[in-house]
Design a protein around this nucleic acid. Structure first.
Length: 886
RNA sequence: GGGCGGUUAGCUCAGCGGUAGAGCGUCUCGUUUACACCGAGAGGGUCGGCGGUUCGAUCCCGUCACCGCCCACCA
């Protein structure tokens, strides 16, 4: 016997193992391919609520398509997450009081990171298994494993050969904490309080001074000019003069350039080409020198005047201001708020810094990636994200891919002593290139590039590298392009765009046909969850508390397109209860020997309730299917929820209690089989959302009935024709439901004690209602808590009535309710009807409405008016009778 | 400065040209033999403001207000 509550803790691990062991997660040999590549989580990370949502949705799709008979490959794996992982390990070293990364040396440090990866790397995938993710775990990949590293080298070398990767010396965003370049995307702007300082630069000829405004006085030491706008009357006659750069012995020119905005600051702007992106451009235009005053750690180098050398940039700022003060060159300041660039991982203020880096020619690669989306080869769901994608892609900058880190793919470039680079997949090939270059047969002394690649470089190859590229594997052939990518909008630029570029370039086709962009999961206040804020909800805690099914269902039910999710725990509790409800429906079914029967034909039932529930099942199945196809996860979840609870449990299971305990053996058998069949359909429809409880019930219900062929996970999605919907059965059941609801509502409003059984009379019933009453008498009496029910000519005094299609319903409540309460109830009902009558009459009185509205709408309004009037007449009669009785 | 989204019941959110919905919470009632992680019933909304289109607008268009996010800039 099934117990009264479902215990996820016992059941979940069992099925996780069984599914995997059975090979159900591997793609079926036959069937239309359907592939999803997982957004690889950081190898050393742990599951957060965003992963839970992301992977729930992927798993819903994977299980749905698998049930529909497709050959599903959900490709799992992890990302080496260069900067993030290096940071974690460095922090560990510090906490353990160990020597730091630099003291340790590169080889030992990298060994240490690998050790950490081996130790913690499997954790997040274990956590995904707990969520129920049906990935083909046998195909797990890691962005630094051999195959993927091979792909990375090949891509780098080929792009380099095509001129799409090149080395360049220019300003980059430099993170002084990690001492590495980072890409534009890894820079986050933060509002900070600061000052705008005004500083006087004396004119060389002693004829006065020019005042510049700056938020970064320390960079003055690297100034090479002062720019003014040529149209600025205040300054234009100063162009060409020299000023004495304070605190140094340098003379620098005043130049005219449109970049200087007469409205901003003082209208005169200091130019520091080595430390500001705009100044860099100005410097280029005017052929100005670049003076780099910072070290890689953003302390002042030997290019700065002696007293400032070795100072940290912020200390230098104070020192420069003090020195200027002493020399009487400060001309005031104002407090301002402005945004300042920070490294997204380190939090350090990013410094524009002049270095040699490798760049990918993103503007060139973007062209095809833009066209593919324009042509609909890849579609975004919801579609409006395409706009974001286009906006970024059309303004894309070269992608700086080299990082001065140790954890990652080493750049496949070797240098000779003169610094000439030789890009090749192996050192031997580089050696060959070097010999050719030097026209020698001797070994050339080579050293490998110290740098590694941006983590996103290898992620960009994920859809084909995980399938075996550059080998032409059967999987690559079969599953590329993949079907759907499921991800959040915050990595459209980081990842989606770059996969599009790389996929189109190397595979000549898009990496995925569809990009489903889901919500971000926020805390209850609508804030982004972060460890720093301490507002993270751990999905594993939620799984422990409510079960994976409840968490999954909640996330899916809240995944409405285009809106973020504010997750509250009560909601999860509610869906846990839903699981219990289903569990108990199965329990009921088992207690009543509703055994599954292979040969069941849903067209076969004769009993109205059975015909009705078959039709309702067909409707629900069609709706869930359509919702999932349209990626309306929330609608699909709501549909199945309502069908299970509000249709199957609330009504059908109540309806079948009389036949299940009745004498009619054929009706009983039919009802048992129908119940078992409907429950099976429910389990299948719900399985993508709640895999564990449904699989468990599938097994248990199969056991006491006929043995099943296999597990639910590999069963078949229902395809039920609309012809199963029986209009007559529907009308009949609707009438019964209306009657029972009327009885319950009336009783409750008049405070009839629940224990009181009252008689019911159907007054002036037409043939159909009379027949229905007779057929369902036992049921109606039971659900309405009636003493008996029958038909009669007229309602006796003291009866309380309400109106139903085809009859007036009278409850004999004399002595139980007081007339005042009933009069009040009638008055309320009549007022409601009057309002509706007035509204509908107004509508129908409008000639334009009659002329322009569709006929069916007009007809509907006419019917509504008629019904309301009829009901009104009946209630009026009831009121008069009540008056008379009083 | 550019772009995107939001504003619907006490709370969290669906819906979307034709009688306003759910979950949770609230109130009343309930030992009806699947389920109190339950059952029955009730209350609760001028669908942010103002205009417009339409026979009809919560839904479409315009505009304003407030909230959030992204990009760019910031001397």
């Amino acid at each position: 016997m099934i117990e009264t509550t479902f215990n996820p803790k016992d059941v979940e691990p069992r099925w996780s193992k069984a599914w995997e062991a059975s090979g159900a997660f591997k793609p079926a040999p036959e069937g239309e391919p359907f592939c999803i590549v997982i957004p690889p989580p950081n190898v050393t990370g742990s599951l957060h609520i965003g992963h839970a949502l992301n992977n729930t949705l992927q798993d819903v799709l994977a299980r749905f398509e698998r049930l529909r008979g497709k050959s599903v490959l959900w490709q799992p794996g992890t990302d080496h997450a260069g900067i993030a992982t290096q940071m974690v390990v460095e922090r560990q070293l510090a906490q353990e009081g160990n020597i730091g990364r630099r003291e340790m040396g590169r080889a030992d440090f990298v060994k240490r990171v690998w050790a950490w990866k081996e130790q913690s790397g499997g954790r997040i995938l274990e956590q995904l298994r707990r969520l129920g993710a049906s990935c083909d775990w046998s195909r797990e990949r890691f962005t630094l494993d051999e195959g993927l590293s091979n792909a990375v080298r090949k891509v780098f070398v080929q792009l380099h050969g095509e001129g799409l990767i090149y080395k360049d010396k220019r300003l980059v965003n430099w993170d002084p904490h990690f001492e590495t370049a980072i890409s534009d995307l890894e820079v986050v702007q933060r509002e900070v309080s600061s000052h705008l300082w005004r500083i006087a630069y004396p004119l060389e000829d002693g004829s006065g001074e020019i005042v510049v405004a700056t938020t970064r006085p320390e960079t003055l030491l690297g100034d090479v000019a002062v720019a003014v706008n040529p149209s600025d009357e205040r300054y234009k006659n100063l162009i060409g003069k020299q000023v004495r750069l304070p605190l140094t012995d340098r003379l620098i020119p005043i130049i005219g350039d449109d970049y200087a905005d007469p409205e901003a600051g003082t209208g005169a702007v200091k130019i520091t080409p080595a430390h500001d992106f705009n100044d860099f451009k100005v410097g280029k235009r005017h052929g100005l020198p670049l003076i780099n005053i910072f070290t890689s750690r953003a302390t002042l180098n030997e290019a700065a005047p002696l007293p400032f050398q070795g100072m940290d940039r912020f200390a230098a700022r104070e020192a420069v201001l003090r020195a200027l003060e002493e020399q009487g060159l400060r001309r005031g300041e104002e407090a301002i708020r402005h945004s300042e660039p920070h490294g997204d991982r380190s939090g350090a203020v990013v410094e524009p810094w002049l270095t040699d880096q490798w760049y990918v020619d993103a503007p060139k690669l973007a062209a095809k990636a833009i066209a593919a989306v324009e042509q609909g080869k890849t579609v975004f769901v919801p579609k409006n994200w395409e706009k974001t994608y286009f906006e970024w892609m059309r303004n894309i900058e070269p992608w700086c891919v080299s990082r001065q880190l140790w954890w990652g793919h080493r750049i496949p470039a070797w240098y000779d002593d003169a610094g000439n680079p030789f890009v090749a997949e192996t050192e031997e090939e580089a050696q060959t290139l070097a010999r050719l270059h030097h026209e020698t047969t001797e070994d050339v002394s080579l050293r490998r590039d110290e740098d590694v690649l941006d983590t996103w470089f290898s992620s960009a190859l994920w859809p084909f590298s995980t399938l075996g590229w550059p080998e032409e594997t059967p999987e690559l052939k079969r599953f590329y392009p993949t079907a759907t990518l499921v991800t959040a909008h915050d990595i459209i630029f980081f990842w989606v765009a770059r996969m599009m570029m790389m996929g189109l370039h190397f595979m000549k086709d898009v990496p995925f046909r569809e990009v489903y962009i889901h919500a971000l999961v926020l805390d209850e206040k609508g804030q982004k969850q972060s460890k720093a804020k301490g507002n993270v909800t751990d999905p594993l805690d939620l799984i422990d508390k409510y079960g994976a099914d409840a968490l999954r269902f909640t996330l899916a039910a809240m995944a409405a397109q285009g809106r973020n999710i504010k997750l509250g725990e009560q909601r999860i509790e509610g869906y846990r209860n839903f699981g219990t409800k289903l569990w108990n429906a199965a329990r009921f079914s088992q207690m009543n020997e509703c055994a599954v029967w292979d040969a069941y034909d849903p067209r076969s039932p004769k009993e109205t309730v059975n015909r009705w529930i078959v039709g309702e099942t067909a409707k629900a199945a069609a709706a869930v299917t359509a919702d999932l196809e349209a990626r309306r996860f929330n609608d699909a979840a709501t549909t199945i929820y309502r069908f299970v609870w509000n249709v199957f449990c609330d009504w059908y299971l109540e309806f079948i209690k009389p036949p299940l305990s009745g004498e009619d053996e054929s009706a009983k058998a039919e009802t048992r089989r129908t119940t078992a069949w409907v429950l099976d359909q429910i389990l299948i429809l719900l399985h993508p959302f709640m895999p564990f409880i449904t699989e468990e019930l599938w097994a248990r219900l199969g056991d006491f009935g006929q043995k099943r062929d296999g597990m639910l996970i590999t069963s078949n999605w229902p395809q039920l024709p609309a012809s199963l919907i029986d209009g007559a059965a529907e009308a009949e059941i609707d009438w019964i439901v209306g009657l029972i609801e009327g009885v319950r509502s009336t009783r409750s409003e008049l405070n009839v004690p629940a224990a009181a059984k009252v008689p019911l009379l159907l007054i002036g019933a037409d043939k159909a209602s009379e027949a229905r009453l007779e057929r369902y008498q036992g049921l109606i009496d039971r659900m309405g808590r009636l003493e008996y029910s029958t038909t009669d000519e007229a309602a006796p005094a003291g009866a309380v009535t309400f109106v139903l299609e085809g009859a007036t319903v009278a409850l004999l409540l004399e002595g139980i309710v007081d007339f005042a309460a009933e009069a009040e109830r009638l008055k309320k009902e009549i007022a409601k009807l009057d309002a509706e009558i007035a509204k509908t009459e107004a509508k129908l009185g409008n000639a334009d409405f009659i002329a322009r509205a569709p006929d069916e709408v007009v007809e509907e309004q006419r019917e509504r008016l008629e019904d309301a009037k009829a009901a009104r007449t009946k209630l009026d009669a009831a009121r008069q009778r009540l008056e008379g009785a009083r």
